[in-house]
Computed example of a mutant assay.
Amino acid sequence: MAMTDSTFTLPLFPLHAVLLPGAALGLRVFERRYLDMLRECSRQDIPFGVCLILEGNEVGAPATPAAHGVEARIDDFDMGADGVLVLRLRGHRRFHVRQVRVRDNGLIMAEVEWALPDPDDELRPEHALLATVLSHIIEQAGSAFAPTHPAQLDEAAWVGWRLAELLPLEESQRLQLLQHDDPHQRLDDLLRWIPANSTRIDENW
């Protein structure tokens, strides 16, 4: 479904949540347009994108999605007790929406440009506190969020995305982080937000 060398046509699943690179997200799928989308993606071995809803709802008329989102891949699926398909998604590449069109069935198709992969930068000294905060949260949250190797706690991009996933942030704040190409800029934002979230962090962990 590639359109040009730099863009790709991607079906979108707008949600009232931000999917982040490397993060997991549970999703119940029952609308026909999205069930058809999943079958099409499976047949063609293509991903779909998740974008935050800026205006509208997750069901019914097509919502207005944010211009930045994340490629979603299915880690696992099951049928709920009510017969609804339940997916466990994993976020991968970031993208920027350049243009959208809506199919007759209400499915939003977007021409997207993939963001460059995060650089392998190490944490800067001014962000060392964030690695300590993340380690504390992971101790409370459990092994599912633990790094695959200790060196990840020194990686600017990994620390930023995991904090964005685990901190009690507003979805608008997560969207702001998603728009940054510089992992250190994401960490600057997180460092500013932590004092405002310190009480909520203690309550959650």
Rank of each mutant, 00 (worst) to 15 (best):
M1K: 12
T4Y: 06
T4P: 09
S6P: 01
T9R: 13
P11Q: 08
L12Y: 01
A17V: 10
V18Y: 01
V18H: 07
L20W: 14
G22L: 02
A23H: 12
A24T: 14
L25S: 02
R28I: 11
F30P: 04
E31T: 13
E31Q: 12
R33F: 01
R33N: 02
Y34K: 00
D36Y: 00
M37G: 06
R39F: 03
R43V: 13
Q44S: 10
D45E: 06
P47Y: 09
P47D: 08
G49M: 12
G49F: 11
C51Y: 00
L52F: 06
L52R: 03
I53K: 05
I53N: 09
L54W: 01
L54G: 14
E58M: 02
V59D: 02
V59T: 09
A61M: 09
T64G: 02
A67K: 11
A67N: 05
A67F: 01
H68L: 05
H68P: 00
R73D: 12
R73L: 14
R73V: 13
D76H: 09
D76W: 09
D76L: 01
F77P: 00
F77G: 08
G80V: 09
A81T: 06
G83A: 03
L85D: 05
R88L: 15
R90Y: 10
G91H: 07
G91S: 07
G91V: 05
H96W: 14
Q99Y: 04
V100E: 15
R101V: 12
D104I: 04
N105K: 01
L107M: 13
M109V: 14
A110Y: 08
E111T: 15
V112P: 03
E113D: 10
E113L: 12
A115D: 06
P117H: 13
L123G: 01
L123Q: 03
L123R: 05
A128Q: 13
A128I: 01
L130F: 04
A131Q: 07
V133E: 05
V133R: 07
L134M: 03
S135G: 15
I137M: 14
E139P: 06
E139C: 12
Q140P: 02
A141W: 00
G142E: 01
A144Y: 01
A144E: 11
F145W: 14
A146C: 04
T148L: 07
P150T: 08
L153E: 00
E155N: 14
A156Q: 08
A157G: 03
A157L: 05
G160P: 10
W161Q: 14
A164M: 10
E165M: 09
L167R: 04
P168K: 02
S172I: 11
L175N: 09
H180T: 11
P183V: 04
P183R: 08
H184V: 02
Q185F: 04
R186L: 06
R186P: 11
L187Y: 00
D188R: 14
L190F: 05
L191R: 10
I194S: 04
P195A: 12
A196G: 14
A196V: 01
I201V: 14
I201M: 12
D202N: 15
D202T: 15
N204D: 13
W205Y: 13
